[in-house]
Simulated scan of single mutants.
Amino acid sequence: MGVDGFGPRVAFYIGNIAVTETVTVTWFIMFLLLVFSVAVTRNMKKEASGLQLVVEQIVGMINNLTKQNMGEKNIAFAPYVGTLLLLIGISNIIGLFGFRPPTADLNTTMCLSITTFVLTQFFGMKSKGLGGYGKGFLEPIPFLLPLNIIGELANPISLGFRLFGNITAGVIIMTLLYGALGAFTDTLLGLTVPLLQAGVPAVLHIYFDLFAGLLQSFIFTMLTMVFISGAME
């Protein structure tokens, strides 16, 4: 909980610039992914085994997911798809370790959705040409041009708000639950030790942080592939 309301706290200042929890946790996740990537790839062997084999299986799954949803010709999008899946997935489940998920900040989710929106427009124009891409907004009848434009602009908004809303809802519910359990422990049991907070929220953490978090990362990634491939067809 923030000082002035619900939201990420300011972790520290660089001069007059406030650096929030969202930024610091995102840096931490990026650092973990970078270290993991270097550790896995520094001594790669022709005959994969152990961790290398697991990572190769994950890469293969991401490649297959990209092929199935975007087609063989768009396999080059697999690195972006994999990055989204890993970054959003880890950001969503990091609440299990006591951190505030970066995806519970609208700035994060909108930046990701705007990135997808820019890629959608760029590759749509590159694939069809500027004229051909613009002509698509006049279909099936030119009268629908305003609605088609609004629909296209609504995609990044819905994409960003969907992820933000689902993750933030989980954070709010867990925050209220911890507060209520702390009050019950103090009032009913007369203890200052957060006894009820230690085990009761575990099941809800599994749902909100693990299940819902991974599901939302998958949905965001799938919609990204649909938007980009749809603009190129």
Results as ranks from 00 to 15, higher is better:
M1T: 08
G2H: 07
G2P: 11
P8S: 05
P8H: 04
V10A: 07
A11H: 07
F12V: 14
Y13I: 00
I14S: 09
I14D: 06
G15M: 11
V23T: 01
V25C: 09
L32D: 07
L33T: 06
N43H: 14
M44F: 13
K46R: 06
L51Q: 08
L53G: 05
V55S: 09
N64M: 13
T66Y: 04
T66S: 12
K67D: 13
E72Y: 10
K73D: 15
A78H: 10
P79I: 15
V81F: 09
T83E: 09
L85Y: 08
I90V: 15
I94G: 02
L96E: 12
F97H: 01
F99I: 08
F99D: 05
P102W: 10
A104W: 02
D105Y: 07
T109K: 04
T109I: 00
T109A: 04
F117H: 12
T120H: 03
Q121W: 10
G134I: 05
F143N: 01
G151T: 06
G151N: 06
L153Q: 00
L159W: 02
G160R: 02
F161S: 08
F161C: 03
R162C: 01
F164P: 03
N166P: 01
A169P: 00
I172S: 07
I173E: 09
I173L: 13
L176Y: 15
G179N: 04
G182C: 13
T185M: 02
T187M: 14
T187F: 13
G190M: 06
L191S: 10
L196C: 11
P201I: 11
A202N: 07
V203F: 04
H205E: 13
H205Y: 10
D209N: 13
L214M: 10
I219T: 00
L223T: 03
S229C: 08
